[in-house]
């Protein structure tokens, strides 16, 4: 695994910067245009969630090696309020803010693998991967 980008998320511009970084990295390592844009949206959703709920956090973009192919791993980590009910948060149309309520389930649809760990008042760690 090689970390190619670690970005602190603390203001709206960071969300745009990191999703554009993800787009470029995905294209560079060989993802199709469509897949690269999907990754970029997933990163934008995760970074927006950090900004919205935790205020500060990090997005790490890692190039990973699988058995047959490489991929891109996106890790979103924050020390924010955590998610009280992960099952609810993964449901479509569920939102505790004024979003579409499609963020996390959407990210899961866009990526190949999705893991979430969260503890109330401690923070949230989301690891998601897409393979070439």
């Amino acid at each position: 695994m090689k970390t190619v980008k670690s970005k602190k998320i603390s203001n709206p511009a960071d969300i745009i910067t990191v999703s554009s970084n993800a787009l470029n990295i995905a294209k560079k390592i060989g993802f199709s245009e469509t897949a690269s844009y999907s990754i970029s949206i997933a990163v934008s959703e995760l970074a927006s969630n950090i900004h919205k709920y935790a205020k500060n956090g990090y997005i790490h973009l890692n190039i990973i090696e699988g058995k047959n192919t490489n991929g891109l791993e996106v890790v979103a980590i924050d020390n924010g309020p955590g998610i009280k009910n992960i099952q609810d948060a993964m449901k479509d149309n569920y939102s505790t803010s004024d979003g579409l309520g499609i963020g996390l389930p959407g990210v899961k649809r866009l990526m190949d693998e999705f893991e979430i760990k969260s503890e109330p008042k401690k923070g949230t760690l989301i690891t998601t991967r897409k393979w070439l």
Binding site: S19, S20, L100
Partner: peptide, 13 residues
């Protein structure tokens, strides 16, 4: 625009 995330999509709707 490169990224239409759920917030932007929600606002456009």
């Amino acid at each position: 625009i490169n990224v239409v995330d759920s917030f932007l999509a929600g606002k456009l709707r």
